[in-house]
Design a protein around this nucleic acid. Structure first.
Length: 358
DNA sequence: CGGATTTGACCAGCGC
DNA sequence: GCGCTGGTCAAATCCG
């Protein structure tokens, strides 16, 4: 099927993970931001949520703080290095507030993603099974329906091409993943065998996880190249038991992650992948609506004894930003620099968003 | 041979 | 009530 030819592996990501606002912040904003970041930090990803991001961003970026971001970071084509750029965009207002896309279902949000020429798709760390496809009225492109293969997970997603932008995909996620991303279960030693060069690693991932016909995150026959997809792994300075997460201590190689405070009530949290000629680029994360019934939600597979961050809005962070952002494994929790000025060098990251689309 | 995908059928919700 | 539409089911098919 032609639609499956598009499947691919996420492109390599550039280093700089978190852009500070230039390092000249007042102590107040800095403290607030550090507080925010610390809040986000825990040793093991324990399911921070959209609400976490939103609250965190509101602490750090409201009051015009976003203006303090580097100009390039404010640009849709934020560039963090030569040959690397990331992009974030806001869905058109009608789409953002679309009643069509807004479901009664909570935790439903849409990713607007842009393919970059290779016709490929990034993985999102989860394994999906297609269970239907429908032609949608007034749309030349069919909509595909996917369900998470995890039996205890009711997460679903719908994928369709944007009618106005041939290279743009609209991926609507619905429901919560009650488990780690697929890659989280990869043997740690696999992940530690990650080659130091992220681009090469990404290439290997691409070659090993992409087949000519039915590329899959984890092709049958076992895990291929170690994939470091991930929710944001946050380290809590106050938490000494900085034991490795399920995914192990991953060196973040060539990663790029950016939380961007939006101007609206919704703070867009986007994991920005570098643009690559043959890559796929996620251009935005847009919740359909604020979820309301997931207060107290705890993913028992995530917390590992760690506190569950406030989850007022529901929606696992990994659903929104399926990234693994973890400081280099060599760093201990006690010696790690304050995350507020996170600039991890040689970090490894593997962003994955889409899978099994067209 | 087992698992994933395809695809027509079926069902529910909604508007008229 | 009827028709339209979107979402899901499930048998057939495909593929490694």
């Amino acid at each position: 099927m032609a639609e499956e030819e598009l499947h691919r592996v996420p492109p390599p990501l550039e280093s700089v993970v978190w852009r500070s606002s230039g390092g000249d912040l007042d102590d107040g904003p800095r403290r607030r931001r550090e507080s925010m970041v610390n809040k986000l930090i825990s040793t093991v990803y324990s399911g921070p949520t959209i609400g976490d991001i939103e609250s965190a961003l509101s602490l750090s970026f409201t009051g015009g703080a976003a203006d303090q971001l580097p100009a390039d970071a404010m640009d849709n084509n934020y560039s963090s290095g030569a040959g690397v750029s990331t992009a974030m965009s806001v869905l058109s207002p009608e789409l953002n507030s679309s009643k069509v896309l807004t479901s009664k279902m909570e935790n439903k949000y849409t990713l607007k993603m842009k393919t970059c020429g290779n016709g490929g798709l990034a993985e999102d760390g989860y394994k999906w099974r297609k269970y239907g496809q429908k032609s949608i009225k007034n749309s030349p492109n069919p909509r595909s329906y996917y369900r998470c293969t995890n039996p205890r997970c009711n997460a679903k997603k719908q994928v369709e091409r944007a009618t106005d932008e041939a290279d743009t995909l609209l991926v609507t996620y619905e429901g919560l993943h009650l488990h780690y991303t697929h890659s989280h279960f990869l043997p740690q030693h696999h992940q530690q065998q990650q080659p130091p060069a992220a681009p090469a690693a990404a290439g290997e991932i691409s070659s090993t996880t992409t087949s000519s016909k039915k590329p899959k995150l984890q092709p049958r026959g076992g895990p291929a190249a170690p994939i470091a997809i991930a929710p944001i792994i946050i380290n809590d300075e106050d938490d000494d038991d900085d034991t490795p997460a399920a995914g192990g201590d991953l060196d973040l190689q060539s990663s790029s992650f950016l939380l961007h405070g939006g101007g609206s009530s919704w703070q867009h949290a986007a994991a920005a992948a570098p643009r690559r000629d043959d890559g796929l680029m996620m251009v935005g994360v847009f919740p359909q609506q604020e979820a309301e019934g997931y207060d107290g939600f705890v993913d028992h597979h995530h917390h590992h004894g760690r506190r569950q961050l406030n989850n007022s809005n529901g929606g696992l962070l990994e659903d929104v930003v399926p990234l693994l952002v973890r400081r280099p494994s060599s760093s201990s929790s006690s010696s790690s620099p304050p995350p507020s000025s996170v600039s991890w060098h040689n970090p490894y990251i593997d962003m994955a968003i889409l899978s099994n689309i067209f």
